[in-house]
Design a protein around this nucleic acid. Structure first.
Lengths: 352, 352
DNA sequence: GCTTGGCACTCTGAACGAACGAGTGCCAGC
DNA sequence: GCTGGCACTCGTTCGTTCAGAGTGCCAAGC
């Protein structure tokens, strides 16, 4: 009917058949032929009629045939239409939500452990790879800093921020400090900055450093330089993520190429590309999906990413998601990712 | 000559040929035929003679032929003899040692980072997987404990032991404590136990708990219970390891079977088997090698583990090593593992 | 008595073609 | 516009063939 490829004019029937085809392909992983659809789609059409529709769908780029005498498989464009408008999301059973909640709670109040737990949850119930970015907060609240002398010129700095996130680092100094001096520095910093935003604390410190310069007592200079180093350290490995279930991906037939797997796993290790992609999801409202090449990263050509932002308080602070083969059960994965994001947000929310 | 299979009586020539065969096979990865050895082994023998020797070696179980018309490949027993008595270890070049040392030092004084760095070093220069167990010390020195209130019933405990190893954990308590009470508990514990062995500190605490029982003030009881929980936490994830370069293993042709790789990677994640194996190496003097099935763990049937214990001070505290295909360049890997263990020991040694 | 050339034999892997099955595209008829 | 029919196209599988590599064994030679 429509010779040009304006997507709007997809007939009711074509949509229904595309949906049936995608669902079937996701289930079996094999190209779907016209005979199968004739039996399966519930439209009471002969294979020949279906072939006509298929020819249209192929011309419009929604499906493709691996070779002349094979059935059709969805293209990325086909998957996209499917998840955007055709897919019927299966809401999670009450019981399943409870199981997820209990998995996340599990007594572990430590934020790091909580993220790991969420990642594990995602990977275990989807049988794919779960990923959770480390929260990136606009405001990081200074809680406590502590300096411990290790030896003559080495000092251990422990910085606690937010709801009990602990960072530590060993500093090599030119000059030695005794325990009580370090204690004083710590006390000074804590009394001034506890509860405040760490960014502004940093600015204040730098400001003060500039203003008073020489006249400043030596204690303060060391305090600033130490605190500075801690900020730096925090800035660096801030953007990161937790992953779980990487090996799950090795069970999928479409990823049985060792070379592709290697590249994928290396991308997981280097984190950069994955982080860039996930960062894009921060702005989205709810679940966001990248299908195959849509992500724009070569290594992710053969997988899809289903992600959702999560928040702590009012602000979106991170993204979590699932990475799996393009041929995944989206109608199941989407609500799972969505719910995990909600549960994690709830767990991170300072309940009072 | 020797019809029975007593290994002692391997002729000089047989040993020489076995060595040549193993070296050749490690280099090329293909079964080695008699013609090749005739050209290559420098023995000036015809292929026919070599075939005779090969037949003997096969009967004794040192080599095997994948099929009738293929050359021979070493068996596990063959590799074993090779690494035990035939192999000529190539000492590391001075320059290489320096590069390794600088990689390890890299300014990072934090013990955790140091271990990771060693693991990375191993994997990057061998192109295989590096592993370093977290140190298990006989004596863990209590350095500092700190209690921070997070909310009404949640307290963050930070425990510092040894040379700046920081552990933290969030405790959920029935009863609330205010900041100054927590401070007092911390002060009490630190003044009593700083510098002492953590095991004995624990015993003392338990002792004291038993002796004074009711009469004990509430502060102390909470101190003990908190400390106890920290000990527990420490005990649990104590035995662990750092790994690097897992993906390197995916480049080896002999490990191109995705299913095998999956099992191997899952073993890496579960840690249990690998830890058991590595623990065995603690007792060994120097470099210890497990070839294929020798390890006794199915998942490790297709790989070899080259390991060496490392120490801090006088005590052996951990093991590091390399995991790679059975067909690896042992003469190169052995000195690398050995040197890395020495360098790490040196870096961990409290230099004064 | 060890070493060696010769020779028959075995096995793998690649190349080839035939047979088969699945599925398509197209056309003519309803 | 739907449908049955038919020719056609591929991929897969299977058996066959052939070359190559390497062995085992035997008999001759030093």
């Amino acid at each position: 009917m429509n010779a040009d490829s304006s997507d709007k004019a997809l007939s009711e029937r074509a949509q229904h058949l595309l949906k049936a085809l995608v669902e079937r392909y996701i289930r079996d992983g094999e190209p779907v032929g016209s005979r199968t659809l004739s039996r399966d789609a519930g439209l009471d059409l002969s294979p020949a009629s279906i072939r006509n529709v298929m020819a249209d769908l192929e011309e419009l780029g929604f499906v493709a045939a691996p070779h002349t005498s094979a059935g059709r498989i969805p293209t990325v464009k086909g998957y996209r239409l499917f998840v955007d408008t055709l897919l019927t999301v299966q809401p999670l059973a009450e019981q399943e939500v409870l199981r997820m909640r209990s998995h996340l709670d599990a007594g572990e109040a430590n934020p790091q452990a909580l993220l790991m737990s969420a990642s594990n949850l995602l990977s275990s119930i989807t049988h794919m790879t779960g990923v959770v970015t480390v929260p990136k907060r606009e405001h990081i609240a200074w809680r406590h800093i502590e300096f411990l002398p290790l030896s003559q010129d080495r000092v251990l700095v422990i910085l606690v921020v937010n709801e009990g996130e602990v960072q530590n680092r060993v500093l090599n100094l030119e000059q030695g400090y005794d325990a009580s001096t370090l204690q004083q520095i710590g006390n000074y910093l804590n009394s001034h900055f506890a509860g405040r935003d760490i960014q502004s604390a940093r600015d204040d410190l730098l400001d003060e450093m500039r203003r008073t310069r020489e006249s400043m007592n030596e204690l303060m200079i060391s305090a600033i330089s130490m605190a500075e180093k801690v900020f730096e350290a925090r800035g660096k490995d801030d953007r990161s993520y937790m992953m779980a279930g990487e090996t799950n991906l090795m069970e999928f037939a479409e990823l049985s190429d060792v070379e592709k797997l290697r590249r994928l796993f290396e991308a997981f290790n280097h984190k950069r590309d994955i982080l860039h992609l996930l960062d894009k999801c921060t702005v989205a409202e709810g679940v966001q999906i990248f299908i195959g090449e849509e992500s724009g990263y070569r290594v992710l050509d053969d997988v899809s990413v289903v992600s959702a932002p999560y928040s702590a308080g009012k602000d979106v602070v991170g993204v979590l998601g699932v990475i799996g083969p393009t041929r995944m059960a989206y109608e199941r994965v989407i609500p799972i990712v969505d719910m995990t994001a909600r549960l994690l947000s709830a767990a991170l929310n300072p309940r009072k």
